[in-house]
Computed example of a mutant assay.
Amino acid sequence: MKFIFQIIITFLMLASVSVTSAQTLSADESWESVKKQAAAEHKLIFVDLYFTGCAPCAEMDKEIFPDPKVASFLSANFITFKSDIMKEEIGKKLSMKYGVTGFPTFLFLNSDGKVIDIASGFKSVDQFTGLLQNAKEAAAKGIFKKYSPQINEKDYPEFYVQAYMANKRNVPIEVIDTYLKSKSISEEVSFVIITGLKAGKQYDDAFLFSSKKLALDYGRSSVVNHIFTILQRKKKEFEKTNDLVAFKKLLEDAKEFYTPEEWARYSDVLLKDFGGTKISNP
């Protein structure tokens, strides 16, 4: 397991300070030690979930984390924890807990393990410092997401645990549907199963209808990522009837969840070659 490190400014570069090692502590003990350190130092927790070979992850390491403004803010306000989700058990557990699908994924928590926010993908210096500042302000106001603070594998069905812990992600749709049909999409476990496994097609309309509330409860990042998955599925349905007008109406309704930069990128992907015909995006 990667060493837990506290970011400090040294020659304007990111430095890692070893707090504990995998040889002496289990994954659960190491994670608990992070929370204890954050409590002792009256700081929040920043988690960077990545994997070796992830280009935007490497770019964050090279360009963003060493930036003096970023490094200074992290050092002053956060205990930083970094984990390779392909190699380290705690990284897999955290990915399972929050239904992580894109990398890098950033978790912002308090010392009790309560989630302040979740974000994913490469961020510029200004975007990332904005996330850090917003997390600090939300925590000060006591504003947290709905996730439970503890990681307990027994809270999840076995197929979901295996999907993340053993990388067995080809779960039969029937298995997922059987579990979900007696649950509400607003429940934490159901939410991460749907978003983490990109499952629950029959709940797509309900998810879209509840998106604002789900974003408040579980974070905007997970919700907008799944909305994109839903829109990709909807595209195939509208292509069968060649109904571009109705599909564009659906896209217009979904637009509010995205930043202008995100929407320019996602809408281009969704409108490209609709029904085999190249469509321009006005």
Score class of each variant (00 low, 15 high):
Tyr218Gly: 01
Phe247Pro: 14
Glu32Pro: 10
Ile9Arg: 13
Phe73Thr: 07
Glu237Cys: 03
Ser111Cys: 08
Leu270His: 15
Ile143Phe: 07
Gly276Ile: 06
Lys213Pro: 03
Thr129Tyr: 04
Gly102Met: 06
Tyr203Leu: 14
Glu237Ile: 14
Ala135Ile: 08
Val189Ala: 05
Ile7Met: 07
Pro149Asn: 01
Gly53Val: 00
Val19Pro: 10
Ser33Gly: 13
Met60Arg: 00
Tyr179His: 11
Ile7Leu: 06
Gly196Ala: 08
Phe238Asn: 10
Asp243Asn: 15
Thr195Tyr: 08
Arg265Met: 10
Ala138Arg: 15
Asp155Met: 01
Pro104Tyr: 02
Ser211Arg: 14
Tyr98Leu: 02
Thr277Glu: 15
Thr195Arg: 08
Lys36Cys: 11
Trp31Cys: 10
Pro56Trp: 00
Asp243Gln: 10
Trp263Asp: 11
Gly130Asp: 06
Asp204Cys: 09
Glu237Lys: 07
Asn170Leu: 12
Asp48Ala: 04
Leu109Phe: 04
Thr178Asn: 14
Ala27Glu: 07
Glu153Ser: 05
Arg233Trp: 11
Phe209Lys: 13
Leu131Ser: 08
Thr277Phe: 11
Ala39Gly: 13
Phe128Glu: 00
Ile173Met: 08
Phe106Tyr: 15
Val161Gln: 02
Glu252Leu: 09
Thr178Trp: 02
Ser95Lys: 00
Glu153Tyr: 07
Lys93Leu: 12
Leu197Lys: 05
Asn225Trp: 04
Ser16Trp: 12
Glu174Cys: 04
Val125Ser: 01
Ala215Gly: 01
Ser30His: 09
Ala199Ile: 03
Gln133Trp: 02
Phe51Glu: 03
Met60Gln: 01
Val125Gln: 02
Lys43His: 04
Asp253Ala: 14
Gly219Arg: 00
Glu32Met: 15
Leu216Ala: 06
Ala76Asp: 12
Ala27Thr: 04
Gln162Met: 07
Ile230Ala: 02
Ser95Phe: 03
Ser75Glu: 15
Lys234Arg: 11
Leu271Asn: 13
Gln6Val: 13
Val224Asn: 10
Gly276Glu: 11
Ile9Thr: 12
Ile64Asp: 01
Thr10Gly: 13
Val245Phe: 10
Gln127Ser: 04
Phe128Asp: 02
Phe73Gly: 04
Lys97Tyr: 04
Arg233Val: 10
Gly99Val: 00
Leu74Phe: 14
Met1Val: 11
